[in-house]
């Protein structure tokens, strides 16, 4: 199963009227404060794509995703937080380490009940794209992400070792996109459905 997703970054000095037009032309999730490295919006790839004509307003970091696995704890999810992590596994990482990293990520929902729906995908395009993986979750509340997920000992005590420049097993580049936005529907139910 595959789909696309895009992180959208407004260009400096973008015409406000054109920004409004962009927001009205396509379903975008506006990033909340605290997001890092991923611009201003997420286009989650379940709605009509961004029409042409907005190239002077925003940059579109489009990725093609191939699902590894996912789960819908609540297919009827009606909000409120969708989170996306786009990351780059270093090119010299051993295949066994990459497989262990993917297994560890997919075990997180077993330890963090605030994760309602989730999907882990490989980034398979477009050619030359720097991202390698996309880790998405949905939460009933922002605290589910910022407290339950971030403060879980499973997260900081185990998973983060793959990301931490102080850890010998680090394989994930420090430059990543950690973004989240409000939603009133399940993107992942539509994507995995």
């Amino acid at each position: 199963m595959s789909r696309e997703l895009a992180l959208v970054t407004l260009v400096d000095g973008a015409d406000p009227d054109k920004v409004n037009e962009l927001e009205e032309s396509v379903v975008l999730g506006r990033h909340l404060p605290g997001t890092v490295g991923g611009g201003h919006y997420t286009w989650d790839g379940i709605d009509d794509p961004v029409p042409s004509g907005f190239e002077d307003v925003a940059n579109f970091d489009l990725v093609e995703l191939e699902l590894i696995d996912g789960s819908l704890g609540d297919p009827g999810f009606t909000g409120e937080i969708k989170r996306t992590l786009l990351l780059q596994v270093q090119t010299d990482a051993h295949a066994d380490s990459v497989a262990a990293f993917e297994r560890d990520l997919m075990a997180m929902p077993d330890h963090i009940s605030a994760i309602v729906n989730w999907a882990l995908s490989r980034v398979v395009g477009p050619p030359g794209i720097r991202w390698t993986h996309c880790w998405e979750q949905e939460y009933y509340t922002l605290d589910g992400l910022k407290v339950d997920y971030m403060m879980s000992p499973h997260h900081w005590g185990l998973i983060d070792g793959w990301f931490d420049p102080e850890m010998p097993q680090q394989i994930v580049d420090l430059d990543l996109a950690h973004v989240y936005h409000h939603t009133d529907r399940s993107v992942l139910a539509a994507a995995l459905g």
Partner: peptide, 26 residues
């Protein structure tokens, strides 16, 4: 505590000299 752990981790992630130190140590 965990908040202090993330503060430590965030500071290390923003400082390239930390990774360089561990490469020298390794």
């Amino acid at each position: 505590d965990a908040a202090a752990w993330w503060a430590m981790r965030g500071a290390a992630g923003r400082d390239p000299s930390v990774g360089e130190f561990w490469a020298e140590m390794d």
